[in-house]
Write a protein that binds this DNA or RNA. Structure first.
Length: 351
DNA sequence: AATCCGGGGGG
DNA sequence: CCCCCAGGATT
């Protein structure tokens, strides 16, 4: 009976998928390069947000060789706005790795795929199943939701126990005859039908055997451990405007957010700056100029929200007649990869 | 086991 | 305001 129900579940989900799947470009290919590209892009990212980036990347880099030989800053530029920029850096690293050490061919199984930088359990399973029909179950946010509801399991999905338990469950339910379609089916089902808010239980193909629905617990599942609270930071960007139509940009290096992206010279403070003239010497130090006048671009600080940080940001316009060291031409500023916060300012200020 | 890492969309 | 999203790396 139990076996019959699992069979019923997997076949129903796959059947639902074949009837209802969205027409998406990465569903027209089994090229491991393109599947890999789509999977990296869609990590923690909605299909609607990732789609235009997939189009841009496949256009700019039709093959892994094209991606491998690109400048990293250009890869980041195309990635700009998609977030989690380590994905883009690892993407570029792995493209070079594939060309250099794998003769341009992606590994054809889960275990070997897992060795690639930026490829974890989920992505290795996705590529192995979709491209090579390996029985490797994927467990993403959609799968956690579908399985926790269908089997009425309240183990936190982001706990060590939950991760283990749901992976085992995914192994039990996967359709071994068609892992490629089943994996995509259960994710699509979670995204479109068994969605986080207001799932369509009334028309659900497995609503008669769904334990969560029977117990009226669908709205409480999945259970997640709560995340840490946000940290507040105060950013003062120094937007230099020289009379030679130049400005200054710096690359963010080391640890922390936006690694490899560019920004205006930054003075970070412990709290909101009330009088920027108090920081006169720090500004001279950072910008290496002597004569300037400074005014706030935004009176009210702009709060840029990241998952774990709120950035209270003020853009200060620094006008100078001095010659800039390492200045960049204003007409070339859009070539640099920048965080959305900076990109929005550039568009608004328009120099 | 916790924490970090973006940005956007929806209720 | 909150939560969630075709997760992975680091500490």
């Amino acid at each position: 009976m139990y076996y019959f129900d699992l069979m019923n579940f997997s076949k129903e989900i796959t059947h639902w998928y074949l009837q209802n799947k969205r027409d998406l470009p990465w569903r027209k290919t089994k090229d491991p390069y393109r599947i890999w590209l789509s999977e990296i892009m869609l990590q923690q990212t909605r299909v609607a947000q990732g789609l235009p980036y997939y189009e841009k990347f496949t256009e700019a880099f039709p093959t892994v060789y094209d991606l491998a030989k690109a400048e990293e800053s250009y890869v980041l530029k195309l990635w700009q706005g998609l977030g989690y920029y380590s994905r883009a850096r690892n993407l570029h690293f792995t493209a070079k790795d594939i060309v250099t050490n794998y003769n341009g061919e992606f590994p054809n199984n889960y275990k070997a795929l897992l060795k690639l930088k930026g490829v974890g359990d989920y992505t290795a399973s996705a590529i192995a199943s979709i491209c090579f029909d390996e029985v490797a179950p994927v467990v993403d946010g959609n799968v956690y939701r579908v399985l926790s509801r269908y089997f009425d399991i309240d183990t936190p999905v982001n706990s060590t126990e939950g991760i283990k338990k749901f992976k085992e469950l995914a192994f039990e339910v996967i359709d071994e005859d068609d892992p490629a379609n089943f994996n995509q089916a259960i994710m699509e089902f979670g995204a479109v039908q068994c969605k986080p808010q207001s799932p369509y239980c009334i028309i659900c193909p497995v609503n008669e055997s769904c334990e969560g629905l029977k117990n009226q617990r669908v709205g409480m599942l999945p259970v997640k451990l709560k995340k840490t609270k946000v940290k507040h930071r105060w950013f003062n960007y120094l937007v230099v405007v020289s009379n030679q139509s130049e400005t200054l940009l710096e690359e963010r290096k080391g640890k922390g957010i936006w690694q490899g992206l560019y920004q205006f010279p930054l003075v970070e403070t412990e709290k909101a700056v009330k009088d920027i003239t108090l920081h006169q010497s720090a500004i001279k130090d950072v910008l290496q100029i002597e004569n300037f006048s400074i005014t706030a671009f935004n009176k009210k600080e702009k709060v840029h929200k990241l998952s774990h940080q709120h950035l209270h940001t003020t853009f200060w316009i620094v006008e100078t007649t001095d010659n800039l060291k390492n200045g960049i031409l204003l007409q070339e500023i859009r070539q640099y990869p920048v965080p959305i916060l900076i990109g929005n300012f550039i568009e608004e200020f328009n120099f």
